[in-house]
Design a protein around this nucleic acid. Structure first.
Lengths: 206, 206
DNA sequence: CGCATAGTTGACTACGCTCAACCCTGGTGG
DNA sequence: CCACCAGGGTTGAGCGTAGTCAACTATGCG
């Protein structure tokens, strides 16, 4: 409950084993859906995304893991990865072998509890994504997405740290539609754009 | 790993405390989003759904819990329920107080591991739902949904146990569109309908 | 027998997708 | 220093299709 055990710094202490590092180039695949699930990863630098290919040969983005965040938790309780992990930019990930982690979870109730909290958080994130998809109108969906992104410390400002192309896909839109949605919001006076910096105005009605 | 600890029968043994029961009428609310999170529930009879109201005054269905299944796991690690639980039909739920369960998870690593597996499974279910939403064409989405529902024991047969109206909402469609999608699939020869029983044919192309 | 609800079907509208052209930026090489 | 190129982003025209609203049918229940 006190400090965060699930970080690159503190987790090795729990495991008591050497941790490997892996470098990934942009667009490189860390593991594929269906691969034998062997490890959990924590992003040291860069950015990864978890995706699943759909029937229509498109990719659904399930999660984006940034520096300090973990990915592949499901692996600990499944035989195969249920999704594919791809580096969006050149990245480094720390590798935590499945068996070691499982043993650690077994012996450290606090770590287990923290891990459960993490899983629940991920659940919530997925629910939020699902909720987003239920908003039909593209500009409304985008607006809601912006609201999720605002940092309480820097109110009403959102800065995109990844290409609009990717964000569009995350939102279940095409780049063209996202672009139109943003211009529409700007003409509404709902937002003000300056490159990848978005400023939300008070009035958030459509 | 041997037997399932997270069932109405075995869980009380882990908790060592009396378990309360609650009866719900159809459409009755078990707890609301934002309520103080006090317990986890397991459905004894009936059927509940977890929903979140969206901006457009619609309800996104996040999960459907049938007899023997649990709901409200997130509550153990959050102060407030992140969704609303509604009975779709008259139901009975067993109540497992949060504190008792947390203590049990702390002292029984096997129970904790099983719980984590459960959380991961729910994660996967949400991912699957998200993937469904990425299929634009209504009839294709429905077809994929049907594929998810087939029971390996009874191949190519799906029986709806809830009104089409609800299923439509789960799929992010209107009842009208779902109806059209089903008739289209039938005219395609992809499925054969008889009331709420659907038979899938071999050829599953659109 | 009537009422309420679920399901189906029709006509119309709206909007997101597709495909394409175009602009703009950054990087490379002559 | 400029010419070229590649990629992301924007904008336009047209199409398909899901939503909406409504009417109608069918079913179950009082």
């Amino acid at each position: 409950m006190t400090i965060d055990l699930l970080t690159p710094d503190t987790l090795p202490l729990q495991l008591g084993s050497a941790i490997a590092l892996r470098e990934l180039a942009s667009e490189q695949i860390l593991f594929r859906q269906g691969d034998s699930a062997s490890a959990l990863f924590i992003v040291k630098t860069g950015r990864l995304k978890l995706v699943r290919p759909t029937l229509e040969r498109r990719l659904v983005t399930l999660q984006v893991a940034r520096s300090g965040e973990s990915l592949g938790e499901s692996a600990l309780f499944l035989k195969h990865y249920p999704y594919t992990a791809i580096a969006e930019v050149p990245s480094q990930v720390m590798i935590y072998p499945k068996q070691d982690l499982l043993a650690a979870l077994h012996h450290h109730p606090d770590l287990a509890e923290e891990f459960m909290t993490l899983l629940v958080k991920q659940n919530l994130a997925l629910m939020t994504q699902l909720e987003l998809r239920d908003i039909r109108a593209a500009h409304r969906r985008v607006l809601q997405y912006l609201h999720y992104l605002i940092d309480p410390d820097i109110p009403n400002i959102v800065k995109f740290d990844r290409p609009l192309k990717n964000i569009a896909i995350d939102l279940g839109l095409t780049p063209a539609t996202l672009s139109r949605a943003l211009t529409r919001l700007e003409q509404n006076g709902t937002i003000i754009r300056e490159q990848c910096v978005i400023k939300l105005q008070k009035i958030s009605a459509a």
